[in-house]
Design a protein around this nucleic acid. Structure first.
Lengths: 214, 214
DNA sequence: TGCATTGAGTGCAAGGTTGCACCTAGTGTA
DNA sequence: TACACTAGGTGCAACCTTGCACTCAATGCA
């Protein structure tokens, strides 16, 4: 009754893949950034150098995966916060309120700092890795949208997409500003800066998305 | 500086092999004997049924390997006892004495009981497995001979072989008798029976191998 | 006796991993 | 500028594992 039908190959391949990802994460933690080569990574993962490229078309893809894995815990927390709030009526205001509240509560600065650590600091020498940040946030956006639609099956899909895109796109924008200003620090001042930026974002989106308060 | 040159393939293959052996040992422990099929073993080892036969030409070979692994600890103890005794002059008497002493001290009944458990009890239904017992003892003989020759580089090789063969062959003989009489028990009475048989063996070999005492 | 069933063992093709040779772009240096 | 060197990435053949279909011998049963 083991997973005989479910192809043991798939499980083993996934295990190899996560072995590589784990090794990369560990090395990043130790070095404070992705400052290592394929050979070193392969040796750490006890895997052939060739196998690394069999699983990931490039190192950037691997780093992106590490990013997403590291972000996953924060995203899970973020979505859990939304899930814990009572269900609204599926209207614009209900969806907006629950997302905004979760954004206030979730430790997004920590998540962003994680990305920065992975991608090499607030002022990375090579800008090639900027798209990775976008890609990481893009996955978060997808998950958030899915959660919102799950919670509000009757909601207008287009409106939900616009809302989530606006908010998450804004998060990317204010993340960059926040990194510029604070360097990704996690002290009280930096967190205050984040709250300021977040407040401006939410106010902006509310103004454009929700009807003006009477 | 990892084992890059030493072919990672060999290491991985060895690991797979020991995974299978471990699974077999565990199953034997649980069932009290090798009362399981290839499919169950493969599932337990999380390995393809085909892979089992890629590593072992038959289940008997696998059982033999489990035997040897289980025996290894006792054999190590046995050889360690010999190694701890002071080096003699390399003559017949010196070699005989140190082996005989180790045989007295080592817990051979436990080793034999282990084999019995693995091979299915003192009165196995199928006699096909009898050769496995001989094979297991044969490996022990090889190791003992190597150890003796290592300790006595100047010894006559033929005489050392004859001595070890005689003693170990005798061990096989009295093991069978011991199992017949005691069923492989490990209580005081059974151990006394073992000591009786062993004394007769050693006396026999001494009479034939060493010159009569003056 | 005839027949179905079970379990050991094999042949084979498909797919994953590995080592090696190789290509290429970027970088340091004379 | 020319050259060497490093490091990411690819092509390829060899090897290992796996699932599947198959054979064969033993056992159980009508």
């Amino acid at each position: 009754m083991t997973r005989s039908t479910l192809d043991r190959r798939a499980a083993q391949k996934a295990e190899r893949r996560s072995t590589i990802v784990d090794a990369a994460r560990d090395l990043i933690e130790e070095r404070g950034g992705p400052t290592f080569g394929v050979d070193e990574l392969a040796a750490r993962a006890d895997v052939s150098r060739r196998t690394v490229f069999n699983h990931f078309p490039s190192l950037d893809d691997l780093f992106l995966t590490v990013c997403e894995d590291a972000l996953a815990v924060v995203v899970d927390d973020f979505l859990a916060r939304i899930a814990r709030t009572p269900l609204g009526d599926g209207g614009r205001s209900a969806m907006f309120d629950e997302i905004a509240a979760a954004m206030h509560d979730a430790d997004l600065p920590a998540a962003i700092a994680t990305i920065l650590r992975i991608l090499g600091g607030p002022s990375p020498a090579d800008e090639r890795k900027a798209p990775l940040t976008d890609a990481a946030f893009s996955r978060v956006t997808e998950r958030l949208l899915a959660e919102v639609l799950r919670r509000h099956p009757a909601a207008d899909v287009l409106e939900a997409e616009l809302l989530v895109e606006s908010l998450m796109g804004g998060i990317v924008v204010i993340s960059r500003h926040w990194v510029e200003r604070t360097g990704g620090r996690l002290d009280a001042a930096a967190r205050a800066t984040w709250q300021d930026l977040l407040a401006r974002l939410i106010a902006n989106v509310r103004n454009g998305y929700l009807p003006a308060a009477p």
